[in-house]
Each structure stands twice: as structure tokens, then as C-alpha cells.
Amino acid sequence: MTEAVIQIENAVVSYRETIALRGVSLAVEKGEFIAVIGPNGSGKTTLLTVINGLVHLTQGQVQVLGRDINGGNRHALRRQVGYVAQVSNIDQRMPISVREVVMIGRYGLLGFFRQPSRRDWLLADEALSMVGMTHLAKRPIGHLSGGEQQRVAIARCLAQEPDIFLLDEPTASLDWKAQTEILELVKRIHDERHLTTLFVTHDLDALPHTCDRVILVKDGLIVGDNTPDKLISTETLSRLYNLPAEVVEVRRPHIHTRSH
């Protein structure tokens, strides 16, 4: 755990007149499992998309796997970064089957003019079976529920065989059971495939309690960065969400007790 796979230096991102990130620096080592938490609109998603270069940097530098993500090889670099976006970002009417959606994960790796081989389909099927969606492989993607689509998105990332795994609120709007299952699934994939994982959530209940490190984001800045037991205290949460300490005490999930 010494090799920095992600190195963000003084990243500034703005969407028109709104500044989403105000000079954020972050180093992530190989194999880390990091949870990024913070209120809505704090810049969590932007921080994640800075890593795969989906947003334009106003200032700063981002090195991923030793290379500049905004350089000429950004498409090649993105092939090594799996990204699960928020639920409901896809067109439910698209005529495409679940298995074909998973195969999209391999399209970038295949490159132009090459069709998926038998091995590619095998990898896609393996990914589907890992997320427990084999029985729905032939269904149109739009016929699946939110939780099922989220599993398919994770399978798509698995088929991509990435080194870095980025998840943006993968459990938002899912029921409690689906949420627990997805959290376990992500952790299992992280361990089995030796990935570096960043997991964004605004919901403290969805915090993977097995994560190594928690990053608190507020108003486009990183306001905390430590192990979960050191960071998730009543005081920090009270500051993060602008709530009085006594309210947080009543509402907050009991992270310490869960991890014991």
C-alpha cells in the first residue's frame, strides 16, 4: 500500500457560475477502499468524475495510474477506470438487453473495428453471474427495477476489468435489503479483484462499514480525511450537516457498534 494510483492536486471545477470543487488535493493508494460522504451538492460526484476525466478541470492536475487523465490518452486511461453513475441516468426505452449493456463495458477495451469474441461474452456472463443477474440476461434493460439496473451497471464495470472502481451513490433510492446486498457485493468485488475503490454516498446508513478511509466533502472542499472510527463522530457530523450535536446524536447511524 505505497503506490499512489490517484493523485489529485488543487483541482478546481466549476459549472458555469457555480464552483463545485475549490482546490481539492487527494492521494489514493493502491488497494484502498474509500467512502466519500457529504451533504447533497457538496461536490462528491464532481470529485469522482474528476478521477475519470468526465468533468473539465478549471485548474489543477489529476494523475491516474501515473498518467494525466486530461491528456491525449484519456480514452485509453478511462478503460482502466470502472464508473457506476447514479441510478436512473439511463434511457429506459432503449432497445438493448441486459447482456448487451454489460458488454458495453468491454467496448472501449476492444477498440475500433473489433467485435466481441467468445471470451468477451464469457467475461460478460461471468460478471452477470457475480452480481446475480444471470436470469435476467436477455431482458430489455428498461424492464428491470432500480436495484437490478444498479447491479447490471456494476456488472458492466466488472466486465471492463478495471483497476479503479468508482461508484456514485450506488445504493440511493434502493430498499434496505438491496442496499445491504449491493454494499456486500461491492466489498467482495473490491477484495477479490484487488481494486482501488471510491464509494460516494450522502446517506450514512449506506456507508460501507468495512471501508479503510472516509473523506468528508463540504462546499467543494475536503473537510475531513481519516479512518471511519476516528472521523465519524457526533462533532464532525454536526459540522458536516450543520445540525446541532444533540440532533445528530439521536439520528446518526451507529457506525462504531456496527463494525465491532
Binding site: H75, Y83, A85, I90, D91, R106, Y107, P116, R156
Partner: peptide
Amino acid sequence: LLFEKEIRATLFNRNVALAVGIP
């Protein structure tokens, strides 16, 4: 015929297509 998979991924979702490394 030549760009079937790139077109398919882009029609499906532009951000997903970008994220897997398709221009």
C-alpha cells in the same frame, strides 16, 4: 456496420460510453 458498438454505446448513454473509453 463498422462502428456498430461505438454507436450503440453512445445511443445507450453518452456518459457511460465516455466512461468505458469510447470517444
